[in-house]
Nucleic acid binder design. Structure first.
Ligand SMILES: [Mn+2]
Ligand SMILES: [Mn+2]
Ligand SMILES: [Zn+2]
Ligand SMILES: [Zn+2]
Lengths: 139, 139
DNA sequence: ATATTTTTGCAACATTATTGCATTTTATAT
DNA sequence: ATATAAAATGCAATAATGTTGCAAAAATAT
């Protein structure tokens, strides 16, 4: 596992540092997406808040994690599993936010449906965010 | 126009106040969706920030405006054109955010495509947010 | 017109985000 | 292994954003 994180950083020409390794670990362990705040709590007193901001920003730029928009002013992040690269994300999967347990899932296997835009509109990125009740909470 | 705003407020059992009328007007005039901050700027020194927060919240609850999630920690708002009511929104249209001019459009005529969820997941709300280049910027 | 209800503004506070710079850590070259 | 260069971190200061309680003001109901 550690070696995988290491190669992710190397591959992206990023220095290997304690915070970056730790944050990658948090994402890997996480059951769903994480907000900045989650990371802050889970790594209490380990790093500065600023380091977390900068790490997340770097990871997004490099295509290591992707953002998930939510309707409540909290951006979530999750590991990219597709082939995302520097400046070009490719995570066209659906995101599901459970209204009950609040876990956010990357539904890797349900591709974003294609959207038909009016003439003259050029599409770049599509975010499909579904909210509702998840499998666990439904049972 | 004024009379329309008035009837919107009446219909929803809301007192008719200067701030509510003005904010409705801003939405009607707006070329696209507005963020809290946009409203603050456009109504400089007219009302308190807190009033804007509370007005937006009330309007969302009543189904007068709807939220549009974005990936950069800023929630946008736009007038509901469909039949939205207290506690039950019905704006299942696609939103388009132009990367160039930054205007956010409600694409009223392109319904959100239906999403196929894994077994056990129950869907409540779907947000489809497309970003790219809009008609005006493309020309 | 008066009483009641609702909304507003202010102040205080909390949370979240950004920036510059000195120090520390990591990577590179010898 | 050591010295050098490059990059990342922590800290402090500051900005931006969001929340709450309460008294004053405005709107509605009687
Ligand atoms: Mn995802
Ligand atoms: Mn809309
Ligand atoms: Zn759940
Ligand atoms: Zn545009």
């Amino acid at each position: 596992m550690q070696t995988e994180f290491l190669s992710i950083l190397k591959k992206n020409n990023l220095s290997v540092t304690e915070s970056r390794m730790k944050i990658l670990e948090l994402f890997a362990q996480a059951n769903g997406a994480l907000a900045h705040n989650d990371i802050e709590k889970k790594s209490k007193l380990q790093f500065d808040r600023v380091t977390i901001y900068r790490t997340l920003q770097t990871f997004v730029e490099k295509g290591i994690i992707h953002t998930i928009p939510t309707a409540d002013n909290s951006v979530l992040y999750a590991l990219c599993k597709d082939e995302c690269t520097q400046g070009h994300h490719n995570d066209n999967h659906v995101h599901f936010i459970c209204d009950s347990c609040n876990v956010t899932y990357c539904l890797e296997h349900s591709n974003s449906p294609s959207v038909i835009l009016p003439k003259g509109f050029k599409q770049n990125r599509v975010d499909v965010v579904v909210s509702g009740i998840c499998l666990k909470c439904n049972a």
